[in-house]
Structures are given as structure tokens and as C-alpha cells.
């Protein structure tokens, strides 16, 4: 019990620090907001023009597609992870030694941090969601089940992405060119997570590639539930696949990290 309270306090402190960071960059939050609205307007009219020439791409109706692309647009922050910069910075400044000494699991701490960030990101996006419904005809599900399915899938997908990024960020131990690597990562993840185009619409070879990569678990899977592309009856199967990715990547991430750490202890920082 005591231990639980201790955990709560410690991780609570980490969570509480996140909004402070946000208020320091208020202008940037506003900018994000306007930029997202602009992007939504472009998306809306682009897809309207696409559907104007008839047909149902990938078997999706216009309504399903609009739901999907708008919601995926909002979940984009999942695609942008700053972990590799954190690692690079901590290594350069020697901060990692301090962080490793703190009385909590390093990975768990950063995970809490990432969850806090996701939560805030979604909170900031709430007005956008309302706008999407009012102005862009996005239809949200009315039943609680779909929302629950979405939330679980989102949490799992976020964790999958977190573990992937953890492994990816370990590259910072071996190279200082983290910036270039992360740009490539953003480009690849943006496309293959389904943040731009739902997987159904991709040609076969791209679909196969996307399914072999973990990224679709983070955007495509949760968003397709919320947008009505995938019925919530398929939830169990989707969750299981997500869970498999999560466990696999989770285990690998800890192994890779332990190995990478050896590199700095050997070289003495």
C-alpha cells in the first residue's frame, strides 16, 4: 500500500510537470490549433473532390473517409515522438547518469511522461474535435462501446509506438546524427501509420508493408474504430494483435536499451 502511494506520488510529480511546459509555449499551442484547422479545410475539400468523381475508394464511403482522415489528423502527435532528442540531449549533457540514478524505473518514468503528453495533446485537440463535427460533418459514434474500444486501442497503440521509439532512440547511443534519423522516421511513420491515407486505400504492396510494420497499430487501428471503418465487434482481435506487438517490442526495447547502456559505461560517457 505504501509502495503504491509512493509510486503515485513520484509519477504524479512527473505528470504534473507536463502542463507547466505547455503554458510556457502557449503561442505554439495556438499556432498548432490554427495550422490544424487549415489542414482540415484542405483535407475536406480535397476528399470531396476525390469522391466527386464517384466510387467508394477501398470500400469506404465519403462519410467514413472524412471521419477517418480528420480524426487521424488529430492523432498525428502519436507520430511525432521526441524521445530520440531526449536521449541525444541526455547523453550529450551527461544527464542520463542522473536520470538512471533516480529511484524509479527510467523507462517507466518516460512512459508516464509520454502518456501525460498524449493526454494533454488530446485535451488541446478537444475544441478541434467539436469543430470537426460542426463544420466538417464528422460523425462520432454515439455508443459507449465504440468509445471504449477506441480508448483501449489508442492506449495500446500509443504504447506500441512508445516501445518502437524506445528502440529507435537507442540509435542516439551510437550516432550523433539523431536529427536526420528522426526526420526519416517521421516520414516513414506518417505514411505507414495510416495518418494520411487509410490502409484500405493503399495498393496491395503498400498495404502489406504497412501490416508488417508496427506503425499502423498507433493511428490506423484506433482511428478506424472511432470513424466507423472497423466495427467494434472486431475489437478483441485487434487488441490481441496490438498486445502482441506491445509485448514483443517491449521486451526488445529493454534488451536493446541494456545493451546500449553498456556502450556508455564502457566508454565512460
Amino acid at each position: 500500500m505504501n509502495r503504491l502511494r509512493h509510486l503515485f506520488n513520484v509519477y504524479g510529480a512527473v505528470l504534473a510537470a507536463v502542463p507547466k511546459f505547455y503554458t510556457a509555449y502557449r503561442a505554439w499551442v495556438w499556432m498548432e490549433f490554427v495550422v490544424q484547422i487549415l489542414a482540415m479545410v484542405v483535407l475536406y475539400f480535397f476528399w470531396q473532390a476525390v469522391y466527386a468523381s464517384g466510387g467508394a475508394l477501398g470500400g469506404l464511403t465519403f462519410q467514413q473517409t472524412i471521419n477517418y482522415v480528420m480524426l487521424a489528423q488529430m492523432l498525428m502527435p502519436l507520430v511525432e515522438n521526441r524521445l530520440i532528442f531526449n536521449f541525444g540531449w541526455m547523453l550529450r549533457e551527461g544527464q542520463i547518469a542522473i536520470d538512471l540514478l533516480r529511484p524509479m524505473d527510467f523507462q517507466a518514468r518516460l512512459y508516464v511522461d509520454a502518456v501525460g503528453n498524449l493526454f494533454l495533446n488530446l485535451l488541446v485537440k478537444a475544441p478541434l474535435l467539436i469543430m470537426a463535427v460542426v463544420f466538417f460533418q464528422v460523425q462520432l459514434p454515439r455508443d459507449v462501446t465504440t468509445w471504449l474500444v477506441f480508448i483501449v486501442a489508442l492506449a495500446l497503440g500509443h504504447a506500441v509506438m512508445f516501445f518502437f521509439d524506445w528502440i529507435f532512440s537507442c540509435l542516439a547511443f551510437y550516432s550523433t546524427e539523431t536529427w536526420g534519423l528522426s526526420v526519416v522516421r517521421v516520414a516513414v511513420v506518417t505514411f505507414f501509420s495510416g495518418a494520411i491515407v487509410p490502409l484500405q486505400m493503399m495498393p496491395h504492396w503498400l498495404q502489406t508493408t504497412a501490416n508488417l510494420l508496427p506503425f499502423a497499430q498507433s493511428v490506423y487501428v484506433p482511428v478506424s474504430f472511432l470513424s466507423g471503418v472497423t466495427p467494434s465487434s472486431a475489437a478483441a482481435q485487434a487488441w490481441l494483435i496490438q498486445l502482441a506487438w506491445l509485448i514483443g517490442l517491449g521486451v526488445i526495447s529493454r534488451l536493446v536499451f541494456r545493451r546500449s547502456l553498456r556502450k556508455i559505461t564502457v566508454q565512460g560517457g
Binding site: F46, V50, S53, G55, V197, M201, L206
Partner: peptide, 12 residues
Amino acid sequence: GIWVIVSQVPDL
């Protein structure tokens, strides 16, 4: 993304 979509419709 644009290529994937627009190549599936006759025109935009």
C-alpha cells in the same frame, strides 16, 4: 499519399 489517392480516381 496524393499519388495513392488520385491515381485511383479518373480525375480530381
